[in-house]
C-alpha cells in the first residue's frame, strides 16, 4: 500500500515536471523551397534528416537541413515535437557524431527571415519556421 502511494506521488511529480518544461510556444512548420519536388514528409523522416541519420529525400535526391540557433523559440519547439531531444541531449548526440567523424551538424541561421532567404536560394534545403512566418517562397511539408 505504501508502495502504491509512493508510486502515485512519484507519477504526479514526474507529470508536473513535464508540464513545467512544456512552455507554450508558437507552433512551427517544416518547409522547403516551392520548386522542390518534395510535397510531404512524416515526423520520422524529418527527424532523421535533422539528426544526420539520412541525407536524402524519399526520391533519393540530396537533402540539406538548416537549423535555427538554440536561442530561437522555433528551435526548442521543433526539437520538442520532432526530434524529441532537449538542448543538452542534442549537444550530447552531436558531440558523439562529430568527434567520431560520423557526421556534421546542420548549418544554422538565427531567425525565420534568414531561413526563408536561404531556402529561396536552394531547392535541396529543408528548414523549420514559426507557422505565422510562412510566405509564398516556401511550401509546408509537415505541420506537427
Amino acid at each position: 500500500m505504501k508502495n502504491i502511494m509512493f508510486t502515485q506521488a512519484l507519477m504526479i511529480t514526474i507529470a508536473s515536471l513535464s508540464i513545467m518544461t512544456a512552455a507554450n510556444a508558437d507552433p512551427i512548420v517544416v518547409v522547403v523551397n516551392t520548386t522542390s519536388p518534395v510535397t510531404k514528409l512524416d515526423k520520422e523522416q524529418v527527424a532523421n534528416l535533422f539528426l544526420g541519420k539520412s541525407s536524402s529525400y524519399p526520391d533519393g535526391s540530396a537533402a540539406v537541413p538548416i537549423e535555427q540557433t538554440d536561442a530561437t523559440p522555433a528551435h526548442e519547439e521543433f526539437h520538442k515535437s520532432i526530434t524529441e531531444k532537449s538542448a543538452s541531449q542534442l549537444k550530447s548526440y552531436w558531440s558523439k557524431m562529430i568527434f567520431s567523424g560520423k557526421g556534421t551538424a546542420p548549418k544554422e541561421v538565427a531567425s525565420n527571415a534568414e531561413l526563408l532567404k536561404l531556402l529561396a536560394s536552394n531547392p535541396a534545403m529543408i528548414g523549420y519556421i514559426d507557422k505565422t512566418a510562412v510566405d509564398k517562397s516556401v511550401k509546408v511539408i509537415l505541420a506537427p
Binding site: I66, E67, W94, T104, A105, P106, K107, E108
Partner: peptide, 8 residues
C-alpha cells in the same frame, strides 16, 4: 558557408 553551433 553558414556556421553551425559545434565549430569555429
Amino acid at each position: 558557408m553558414l556556421p553551425n553551433a559545434y565549430a569555429l
